[in-house]
Design a protein around this nucleic acid. Structure first.
Lengths: 246, 246
DNA sequence: AGTATAGATGAATCAAGTTCATTTTTTTGG
DNA sequence: CCAAAAAAATGAACTTGATTCATCTATACT
């Protein structure tokens, strides 16, 4: 049994597997989940129904494999996007746009594949879970990096931020599907990010600062000055609405 | 055909409907979605399979009705919770806790019932959609009230906030289900709310202020003072890290 | 070419939802 | 109170889609 031949065989099998996965994703995308029967998938891959079962244990496994492929691709692109941007905000924006658009495309598949697992802890045993972990690890990395740079608050667990980020985006993608024609996605994602980053940032760019710190600083300066002034002139510095009301 | 008798009949029908819905929710809750076959539901309601179809067009309709009931109850409780609290933050906390715990309980049912509809816009025609609207209207009301009081920023659409809120919470509930034993829910929801409210508030309580405004104010004061000082003393006020680095 | 082995097929089986002819229960009128 | 009519309930039969498997076809090796 020669090495080369064995390798070729494995390659052929993997190629066919990928073909079936591609057919699956295509059927879900343009025929909808209702019509994503095994028959339709087999037909799209130019195979008989039974053949699909030579490559995948059952429909559930097939869908999971398709989702795994989806996450693997997504992870690649997410990593690339993060490498391309150098500040935290840009990275989060890129991740959000990417996640939103991809999930919007393949949501029916993802939902159908995940559905049966969501209520059970056995999902943690699946390959899709492992790949999902690797995917969100990209986000986690961005956050941790941001924390170490002092850009992101350290008093909230990454897990919570992650849930807020992806949960918000996915819910958002779902509502976007309902509002018939897709509206200005970029703009809406940007709005979402406004809220998210404002909540997460330690020293956000959007014109918000750490109030306690600023006030302490201000207080110090003013005391200094008052001292100085007391010694010199007599005019008093106007100092009213220190807390502000809008 | 007497009024009383007719009324009694309708009542009987509605009572049986409610019984079937209760059985459905019970089966989902304690036998899991896998085993929530029509047979099991019928059995739990002490009926033959066929009888279920006398009251609901098909399984899908049955599940939707169950979800509708769920949302109706949830809306009642949400309204009560909002009435009980008087400031925006307390109201949001109450809504979050309520949503989180309830959704955690009945997620399998909700997911299964919604699944088929999520990708399609025909969901908007369903009763469940209408009830969901009424439910989120409670949240919307809290937000709008908060905006009018100047507590919540007005530059982000309520829809975005809503998606961030419920999306984050639901994702969160899902991850909580995965982490085998449920951890300190209260505490985690509180963390989530920290992030969410910080993002949404106009003048958040957590020691954050509008930076641009503070800086403008500070600048003005300093210029004043510099003028004064120039005329009087000669000591200079130390003024370095104006932007701060953590 | 001839046999062995892997790969593919689609008819048969199975499972769950749905329908419907029949049976049981309830209502109504004499 | 009884019988006919109407309403409600039943479960066996049907339908649809996933899965299995006996059979067939193509490929590899001598």
């Amino acid at each position: 049994m020669p090495e080369a031949a064995s390798k070729t065989r494995r390659e052929k099998v993997e190629e066919k597997e990928r073909a079936i996965l591609a057919a699956t994703r295509a059927v879900f995308r343009d025929k909808g989940p209702e019509d994503a029967k095994i028959t339709a998938i087999a037909q799209a891959a130019n195979l008989a129904e039974g053949t699909v079962y030579l490559y995948f244990k059952n429909k559930q496994a097939l869908l999971m494999a398709a989702v795994s492929e989806f996450y693997a691709e997504l992870t690649q692109d997410a990593e690339a996007a993060v490498r391309a941007a150098h500040e935290t905000e840009g990275r989060l924006t890129a991740l959000a746009q990417l996640h939103f658009s991809r999930v919007l495309d393949e949501w029916p598949l993802i939902a159908e594949a995940m559905g049966p697992y969501l209520p059970s802890p056995e999902y943690r045993e699946t390959e899709a879970y492992a790949l999902n972990r690797r995917y969100v690890a990209v986000f986690d990395g961005v956050i941790r990096d941001g924390v170490s740079r002092g850009e992101i608050r350290a008093d909230v667990s990454v897990a919570v931020m992650r849930d807020a980020f992806y949960g918000g985006l996915e819910h958002f993608a779902r509502s976007a599907r309902l509002r018939d024609s897709l509206p200005d996605t970029q703009a809406e994602v940007a709005q979402f990010l406004t809220v998210f980053t404002a909540g997460i940032m330690d020293r956000p760019s959007a014109g918000v600062l750490d109030g306690a710190r600023v006030i302490r600083r201000l207080q110090g300066v003013i005391t200094d000055i008052e001292d100085q002034l007391r010694a010199g002139q007599q005019d008093d510095v106007e100092m009213q609405d220190g807390e502000g009301t809008q």
